[in-house]
């Protein structure tokens, strides 16, 4: 089965966009954008280009990702299948957050439902039923009785203690990523060092982004920041995270990072710049794994990461064009890694 998956991943990897593809999309006249998208295998995005609705674009991107994931998981069983399936569930967690925000704002089901992302074959929640609940308390109770009980239980406790939406969101995110790390651990023995590298890149990046944001943008105390980290024993160990959380400036945090991670940040000390470097680093890692002889599951995961980054860049270009931004400004916002930028 791994030969089948490897072949599938190799075939799929030809769908990843090159710098020239982005250049064509940036340079195309408005009326030829659908054609450029179709020629480069994104016909489903082309169909919705003219409606200028970011929600519809986002839904189409997610539908495309889910469709490709569905193809890739066909030969998978057991822990491997569970891991990739769980990877898609962050879109459903995103739906949960939309529902929670909507209910907190007292929105009606009819207003909320169009904002939710259809999960197709990966759907585990009855979104219609959840959208019809009266308030956030009832919603949390319902979620706690469903497939995301483990993720929601702690979040409900935290929300009841604070009635703060940030607390709820942060608890959901942390529980989700810890679930992912837990599932990854079950695979690491068979999926090899490449898979561990991918996971380390993902979890370290997530932790560092959260740490910088919570500590310096939101001004949370060190203990709370540390509590919100994903404890997963990759590059940033719990001890290191505890130490980083207690530091007082971005520069100190960057200086205290492991040398390899610090090196890839190219001396940047502003938070948006750091985020961009971290994303580039994650894409490089995934690119390396995809084009290596790594086990099929690691290559499949790398492909899914890269495909999502690509589609987010395509979304950035389309949104930039709709907003009438200059080509250079859009190009600056894109993450281009291996080819040296746009």
């Amino acid at each position: 089965m791994s030969a089948y998956l490897n072949t599938r991943v190799s075939l799929h990897s030809s769908r990843l966009w090159q710098t020239t593809d982005f250049q064509s999309l940036l340079g195309a006249a408005d009326e030829s954008v659908p054609q450029v998208l179709t020629e480069r295998g994104l016909g489903t995005l082309a169909a919705g280009y003219t409606d200028n609705d970011p929600r519809s674009l986002e839904a189409r991107i997610i539908a495309l990702l889910l469709e490709e994931t569905l193809i890739l998981i066909r030969p998978l069983v057991g822990n491997e299948r569970a891991f990739i399936t769980y990877w898609t569930q962050r879109f459903e967690i995103s739906n949960v957050k939309t529902l929670l925000r909507g209910k907190l704002a007292g929105e009606l089901a009819a207003t909320l439902l169009p904002r939710l992302t259809p999960m197709g074959a990966f759907a585990r929640l009855d979104l219609h039923e959840l959208a019809l609940v009266e308030d956030i308390a009832e919603l949390l109770r319902k979620l706690e009785a469903g497939p995301y009980a483990d993720i929601v239980r702690l979040a409900r406790r935290a929300f009841e203690a604070s009635h703060d939406l940030f607390t709820l969101d942060a608890a959901l995110d942390r529980s989700y990523f810890e679930g992912l790390a837990h599932r990854a651990r079950a695979l690491e023995a068979t999926a090899g060092a490449a898979f561990r590298r991918l996971m380390a890149s993902l979890i370290d990046r997530t932790n560092l982004i959260w740490l910088l944001r919570y500590r310096f943008n939101y001004g949370l105390p060190p203990a709370q920041v540390y509590y919100l980290m994903v404890i997963a024993h990759y590059g940033l160990s719990p001890d290191r995270l505890r130490q980083l959380s207690a530091l007082e400036s971005v520069e100190e945090v960057v200086a205290a990072l492991p040398s390899q991670l610090r090196g890839s940040l190219h001396g940047s000390t502003d938070i948006p710049g750091l985020f961009a470097h971290l994303e580039t680093m994650a894409a490089d890692t995934a690119y390396g794994v995809l084009h290596s002889g790594a086990p099929a599951i690691a290559r499949a995961f790398a492909y899914l990461i890269l495909r999502e980054l690509d589609l987010r860049d395509v979304r950035a270009v389309l949104r930039g064009r709709h907003l009438g931004l200059q080509r250079d400004a859009i190009g600056m916002a894109l993450r281009r890694t291996h080819e040296g930028g746009l």
Binding site: R156, R157, D164, T167, P221, A223, Y227
Partner: peptide
């Protein structure tokens, strides 16, 4: 004590 307050809420402390 102030540094702990947010943490307690985040952890669902009762």
């Amino acid at each position: 004590a102030d540094e702990v307050r947010g943490l307690l809420a985040q952890a669902g402390w009762r």
